[in-house]
Write a protein that binds this DNA or RNA. Structure first.
Length: 423
RNA sequence: GGAGGGGUGGCCGAGCGGUCAAAGGCAACAGACUGUAAAUCUGUCGACGUACGUCUACGAAGGUUCGAAUCCUUCCCCCUCCA
């Protein structure tokens, strides 16, 4: 695959930027891409109300697809969500109602729409307008016996057992339910359905989806006599081998109400040195030549590259204005030691501060500690600061006199800051 | 349906009547060193109270006991083997 020289813009970009892991037929896909608009899709789970940065690579692939003149579809797994994924080992995940799923999809779409240009939902917009579809639209209607007869007959257990997802589970002697076993069939069917409805001919996804994607390609040839393509991206981990996207606050969400643009900016700003170049290629639109320059920076200078990464990645997801704002706040906070206004903020009534609030309680209120006890430990450990002065006594009273212009700055460690605003 | 083995803190995993808020590891947070990096070292890591302490927690509900994560009963769930 490395020796292959694509003629299509899409594949060239995908390969150069490190999104390509495997493809069912690179040369044929390349040909298809150079002979007209190709419709491609990526599936997303609709169990939550926000996607997180783990979904960002697939979204970026859809973005590039669109930028290079093709049409992206975001497939929301509303139908499969309703079945409930049985792999969680404790309680079976709660079943979501249609209303919940619809709300989730609407919420997910907001940041998504910043990255990919959506047209009308009915797919009747411009030729490369993206649109979202919900697989509940067809999975809900399926009738078991006809489905088995028309689709099920094309799957042999023999072959299904050879897929990694299945094989690994069996080898480890972990249970695999019949339901999970059917996921690949449903996903294969989704692909064929999209091919029929929207002339979709390419499915993309994470490398763990390879088996399911290939099944869809096969099924398309058998039941619809169409040539479909599959393409996967590698699982992105940090240079130290960790899965991406875990922080104090949990996952790095794409929705700003879950994870503010400033926090998002900070997440990227704190990227490990070794990841900067790779992430610039994957998570920004910057030209490769520019990235090469940034990547070449040595020592502390690499921080400049991280700032660019953070700014550009934030701009893609939250808009240029929010990104500039976040960058400015970060600059003030970390370089000038002044207070930036995009820091996380809590409001407290002036009257409440009259008698003073114990420092530990205030840290907990501001969200810098999960409990009073944690706040106390933070202070005891010397990690807490009030207006940039270390707090030595956990019970120290904080009053309105500590505010400058009605604002008190709290810090937990060097990187986490919050503002208390008097109202 | 029969026989056996399990369910412990965010995860993995020890404990098997008191000394258990529960070893050890991972993850996480803070400190030191740095560059808002990595690695390393140190500390912290259920809630509430300044603290001796109180409460909640070892699948669920009962019980035995001065005392239970540990014993008994019932129930739920998982695994292995047999039918």
């Amino acid at each position: 695959m490395t020796s292959f020289q694509p003629r299509s813009d899409f594949l060239r970009v995908i390969i150069e930027r490190g999104y390509l892991h495997q493809c069912t037929d690179l040369e044929a896909l390349d040909k298809r891409l150079t002979s007209g608009v190709v419709t491609a899709y990526n599936g997303f789970d609709a169990t939550g109300d926000s996607l997180h940065i783990g979904h960002l690579v697939p979204i970026m692939m859809l973005r590039w697809l669109q930028k290079t003149g093709h049409r992206p579809i975001a497939l929301m797994g509303g139908g499969t969500t309703k079945v409930g994924d049985p792999s969680g080992k404790d309680e079976t995940r709660k079943m979501l109602s249609d209303a919940d799923i619809a709300a989730n999809i609407a919420s997910i779409k907001r940041p998504f729409a910043k990255l990919v240009n959506f047209g009308a939902d009915d797919g009747k917009g411009g030729p490369t307008d993206a649109f979202m579809v919900n697989n509940a639209d067809w999975l809900d209607e399926l009738k078991y016996i006809p489905f088995l007869r028309d689709v099920g007959k094309h799957f042999t257990i023999n072959r299904m057992l050879t897929f990694d997802s299945v094989k690994l589970r069996l080898e480890r002697e972990q249970p695999l339910t019949f339901l999970e076993f059917n996921y690949m069939i449903l996903q294969a069917y989704d692909f064929v359905e999209l091919a029929r409805r929207h002339n979709c001919s390419l499915q993309m996804g994470g490398s763990d989806q390879w088996g399911n994607i290939v099944s869809g390609v096969d099924l398309g040839r058998r039941v619809a006599n169409v040539d479909l393509f599959g393409l996967t991206c590698p699982l992105i981990t940090t240079a130290s081998g960790a899965k991406m996207g875990k922080t104090v606050a949990g996952a790095v969400w794409l929705n700003p109400d879950r994870f503010s643009p400033y926090q998002y900016y900070q997440f990227w700003r704190n990227t490990e040195d070794a990841d900067v170049g790779r992430f610039l290629k994957l998570f920004t639109d910057l030209p490769l030549a520019e990235i090469a320059k940034l990547e070449a920076l040595q020592g502390a200078e690499i921080n400049e590259a991280k700032k660019v990464l953070a700014l550009e990645a934030t701009a893609l997801c939250h808009g240029r204005e929010a990104a500039d704002d976040a960058a400015e706040t970060a600059r003030k906070t970390f370089e000038e030691g002044v207070t930036g206004d995009a820091l996380p903020t809590v409001e407290i009534a002036r009257g409440e501060l009259e008698g003073g609030i114990a420092a530990f309680a205030l840290f907990a209120r501001a969200g810098l500690a999960a409990s009073n006890g944690e706040a106390r430990r933070l202070i005891k450990g010397g990690g807490a600061r009030l207006n940039d002065t270390a707090v030595s006594d956990e019970a120290q009273k904080v009053t309105a006199a500590d505010a400058t212009d009605g604002v008190i700055k709290l810090s937990a460690g060097k990187k986490r800051h919050a503002l208390v605003k008097l109202v």
